[in-house]
Amino acid sequence: MRAKKIGIIGSSRGFGKSVYGFFAKKGFPITGSYIGSPITNKEVVEDSDVVIFAVPIGVTVQVIDEMLPYSREDQLWMDVTTYKVGAVNTMLKSSADVIGLHPLFGPTEADTWRGQKIAVHMARVRAWSGWALDFLKATEARVELVDPAVHDFYMLGAQGLPQLLNAFVQAKVILALGFDTKQLLKLATRFSRKSFGLIGRILQQKNHRLYADIQIEHPGTAHMIKECIAALREVQVMVDRKDQLGLISWIEELDKQLGPDFVAEAAKL
């Protein structure tokens, strides 16, 4: 991977900080901007061969859009935001080559990308194809090539749903029911400890804006919540009626519809 001048917009935290460290360790000349930094986003774009956008989800499209007038045909633009459609479509308005990236792991796990998964969309890759492939190889990550619209749809189930229910709603109910959290952890089963682990890993990052944006910025979140409420109401009716057979049948139907392949693979996680 030949050294190029790397510019990161949003370099002070999260994946921006991780990407900065990745290229710095490999000896690349690198600049970064962030709120209050001495260098501006415009200066980063004008001074860089590779521009990487690593800003919060809710402002990604706006920040990219503001930089469009300063793009060049000899540049590569990439982003590492959670949702790809808006970011990729906006980068495609530039003159640069364009690749959308989504590291499928948390910023606190980003000391090394080895063995992790990265969703990738080669939106427009001309002169930068060789360098881009070398970069992805150098990360030692597992690359998942995926269309932005397909990616964003599945992120609702792969991120939005488990984070909302298994972390935030579960935490809210734990507090509402008045559990002593120390005693709860002492008596937790192996299964529940894994579930509580998601709460801990997310909240420990102290990046609450990221997880709020994951819910707020996905167009399917409202519908997902309606489906969650509908499912809970179905269970509530059966519990109120003490309908054991009905609930068994309900669970059996879930098992059947998900299918043995999904169940077997998910059980390994």
Rank of each mutant, 00 (worst) to 15 (best):
A138S: 15
A138M: 10
E140W: 04
A141G: 08
V143D: 09
E144H: 11
V146D: 09
D147H: 06
P148K: 09
A149F: 14
A149K: 09
V150N: 08
V150C: 08
V150T: 14
H151K: 00
D152S: 04
D152Y: 06
Y154V: 06
Y154E: 12
Y154D: 12
M155F: 13
L156K: 03
G157F: 15
Q159C: 04
L161K: 11
L161N: 10
Q163V: 13
Q163E: 14
L164F: 15
L165C: 13
F168S: 10
F168M: 12
V169M: 14
V169R: 07
Q170T: 15
Q170R: 11
Q170I: 12
A171W: 01
A171T: 03
K172Y: 15
K172R: 15
V173G: 03
V173A: 08
V173H: 02
I174N: 06
I174E: 07
A176H: 10
L177R: 13
F179A: 12
D180Y: 05
T181K: 09
T181D: 03
K182H: 11
L185D: 03
L185E: 08
T189Q: 05
T189L: 06
R190H: 13
R193K: 14
R193N: 05
K194W: 11
S195W: 03
S195L: 14
F196G: 03
F196I: 09
G197T: 01
L198T: 07
L198Q: 07
L198F: 11
L198H: 03
I199V: 10
G200N: 11
G200K: 06
G200F: 11
R201T: 09
R201H: 01
R201E: 10
Q205N: 01
Q205Y: 04
Q205T: 03
K206W: 02
N207C: 02
H208G: 10
H208D: 13
H208F: 14
H208S: 09
H208N: 13
R209W: 11
Y211V: 03
A212T: 12
A212F: 13
I216V: 13
I216C: 02
E217N: 10
E217V: 04
E217D: 07
H218M: 05
H218T: 01
H218L: 05
H218G: 02
H218N: 10
H218R: 00
H218Q: 05
P219A: 04
P219T: 03
P219S: 03
G220S: 04
A222T: 13
A222C: 08
A222G: 05
H223T: 13
H223M: 13
H223S: 14
M224C: 05
K226P: 00
E227H: 08
C228E: 00
C228P: 00
C228T: 05
I229T: 04
I229Y: 05
A230M: 07
A230P: 01
A231V: 10
L232S: 08
R233P: 00
R233E: 15
E234D: 15
E234H: 04
V235I: 15
Q236A: 05
Q236K: 10
Q236S: 08
Q236H: 06
V237H: 07
V237F: 11
M238W: 02
M238H: 03
M238V: 03
M238N: 01
